[in-house]
């Protein structure tokens, strides 16, 4: 199992990471090794086994549909890198 530079670039794009050429090379090698190792799981027959998606044994957690207090807007905006009129400000979505 080995991962090509092109695959690393594709995954980085999905993950919204910009990698240097050096990083691409490093991750291609390291991820290949890690994937080779995790392929070990294929030794196990998991036919008909339910996937475990959470660690708690509980069922749905429900509550009454009532309005409850949440953080005030000025608190939420306190760590915003840029804001305007109580909104998060970002560069244009389209060029």
């Amino acid at each position: 199992m080995s991962i090509s530079i092109e695959e690393v670039e594709h995954v980085a794009q999905l993950a919204r990471l910009k990698l240097s050429d050096e990083e691409k090379q490093m991750f291609a090698e390291q991820l290949s090794k890690i994937l080779q190792y995790v392929n070990k799981l294929n030794e196990l027959d998991t036919e008909g086994v339910e996937p475990m998606s959470r660690a708690s044994h509980m069922e749905n957690v429900l509550r009454e549909d009532e309005v409850k207090p949440s953080l005030a807007r000025e608190l939420v905006m306190k760590n915003a890198p840029d804001e305007q009129d109580g909104f998060f400000r970002v560069p244009s979505v389209l060029d």
Partner: peptide, 23 residues
């Protein structure tokens, strides 16, 4: 880079902002 944390100030558009801030 939008609600909290490091933001790259020199991004031209939103995708660049994500890419640069995260990297």
């Amino acid at each position: 880079g939008v609600r909290y944390g490091v933001r790259a100030d020199d991004a031209d558009n939103l995708i660049d902002l994500y890419l640069e801030s995260r990297s």
